[in-house]
Design a protein around this nucleic acid. Structure first.
Length: 431
RNA sequence: GGAGAGAUGGCAGAGUUCGGUUGAAUGCACCUGACUUGAAAUCAGGCGUGGGUUCACACCCACCGGGGGUUCGAAUCCCUCUCUCUCCGCCA
């Protein structure tokens, strides 16, 4: 959420910037009108409340002294009704304002290139050289099909439906090895605190990181056995629980920066992507991810984004997977981000780079929703933190990349050196 | 699953019986000043969060787990939800 003050004192500029960067049309006239009414109503409501408070005190005093309070009661007779009405009107307006404002995306950082979609993203760097195959390279589905136990989409469909998979044998083990390797790397070498978190979260938590109210249809919602139980939702990423660890908290300055890493499954309804990436493991309703989250002081967030991205890159480098780093343009960034790097891994059969990590600085956008704050030493007022998150990496897509990049002519798949200790020393998965 | 107790400011902990000047006693922690060579101890003062009006000074409003209700007035009474703790049962 953007600072409400932007919608009051700098409405025109904010609207122009949102249109320029995000193609987001802010209804300026409506906001102005609502804001005007809000102001009048709030002043009126609060002065009625002040009046009620002082009357109530006067009545209390008179009663204590044994005076007749009937005339005083008569004097405030109509006040209650008036106040009720003013409160309701104010409440309606504020709800309306909040609904509009909480649906406005974050403003991109200055240095983010202007653009409408992924066409305008900026390639920053490339690492590694795509392997030249002297045989016809297969995609990960076909590679896996040749192995003793593979990737079983039919079983996935039987058990749950489309976009679910069952992994078995060496592939399942490789999948686990990847997650373990990543988490160990970040915890042991990059300073992250390992966290185990709930996979089901409440609506306040989802609001905090920006999934609600606007993107509820991207999630799986879970209702307990009784109507009375509070509704929960499956996390679409560990960013949600990790970042919300500091919702409604005030940290001491010395506690920052905070950095968390967690390996969790992620659940996405993929409501808007019917027909996209239907083959293989690329786009599933359930996938595993190692997520990295930072909570920092505002002045440190941009430098932290670089570090966070390097940590994700390090995973690809150690796995020896060719990738490129892309700076997303204003139009392609997520709702809450002010700057995002995507890491894209090389997939030989698609002859293209596919997203495997997304690292974002959310600025104070989530922190404001969550009221995640810190207090500088000696300062009276708490300040909003900045939050960042990045995948380090998506486990399923990393598995895809390995199967495709490490396949050999005989149908076997080499195991990347760094994963071999996690595979009982095995160096290759045989057909 | 059954029975009971509880949720108050950074922490601890009064207030809830019998609603009234209580944004909330007291202690600890913390900050500022005095004393001191320095520190400790002591003394004095300060010390929650969010929001609104205002150039500002300042003033006002809301908040005692969440939501709703009763009332001129609710931390205090009623309803409801959530969470925590104790005992029994069950369970990975």
């Amino acid at each position: 959420m953007l600072d409400a003050k932007l919608f009051r004192s700098e409405l025109a500029e904010t609207a122009a910037r949102l249109a320029e960067t995000r193609g987001y049309q802010l209804d300026v006239a409506k906001l102005e009108q609502l804001e005007q009414r809000r102001k009048a109503l709030q002043v009126r409501t609060e002065s009625l409340q002040a009046e009620r408070n002082s009357s109530a005190k006067a009545i209390g005093k008179a009663k204590a002294q044994g005076e007749d309070i009937q005339p005083l009661l008569a004097a405030v007779d109509s006040l209650g009704q008036e106040l009720d009405q003013a409160k309701h009107e104010l409440n309606d307006i504020q709800n309306e304002l909040h609904e509009i404002i909480s649906g406005v995306p974050n403003l991109p950082a200055e240095e983010v290139p202007l653009g409408a979609d992924e066409e305008d993203n900026q390639e920053i760097s490339r690492w590694g050289t795509p392997h030249a195959f002297d045989f016809a390279a297969k995609d990960h589905v076909d590679v896996a099909a040749q192995l003793a136990h593979g990737m079983d989409f039919e079983k996935g469909a039987k058990l749950a439906g489309a976009r679910f998979v069952v992994l078995q044998g060496a592939i399942a083990q490789l999948h686990r090895a990847l997650a373990q390797f990543m988490l160990n790397l970040h915890v042991n070498e990059h300073g992250y605190t390992e966290a185990y978190v709930p996979y089901l979260v409440n609506h306040d938590t989802l609001y905090g990181t920006g999934q609600l109210p606007k993107f509820g249809e991207d999630l799986f919602h879970v209702q307990g056995a009784t109507e009375k139980q509070v509704p929960l939702s499956l996390i679409p990423t560990a960013e949600v629980p990790l970042t919300n660890l500091w919702r409604d908290e005030i940290a001491d300055e010395e506690q920052l920066p905070l950095q968390y890493a967690a390996h969790t499954p992620c659940f996405r309804s993929e409501a808007g992507s019917h027909g996209r990436d239907t083959r293989g493991l690329i786009r599933q309703h359930q996938f595993d991810k190692v997520e990295l989250v930072w909570l920092v002081k505002p002045e440190e967030s941009m430098a932290t984004l670089e570090r966070l991205t390097e940590h994700a890159e390090r995973v690809l480098q150690l796995l020896e997977l060719p990738y490129r780093k892309v700076l997303l343009c204003t139009g392609d960034m997520g709702f809450g981000a002010c700057k995002t790097y995507d890491l894209e891994v090389w997939l030989p059969t698609q002859e293209t780079y596919r997203e495997i990590s997304s690292c974002s600085n959310m600025g104070d956008f989530q922190a404001r929703r969550m009221q995640a704050r810190f207090r500088r030493k000696g300062a009276k007022k708490p300040e909003l933190m900045h939050t960042l998150n990045g995948s380090g990496l998506a486990v399923g897509r990393a598995l895809v990349a390995i199967l495709e990049n490490y396949q050999q002519a005989d149908g076997s798949v080499k195991i990347p050196t760094v994963l071999q200790p996690y595979m009982g020393g095995k160096t290759v998965i045989q057909p």
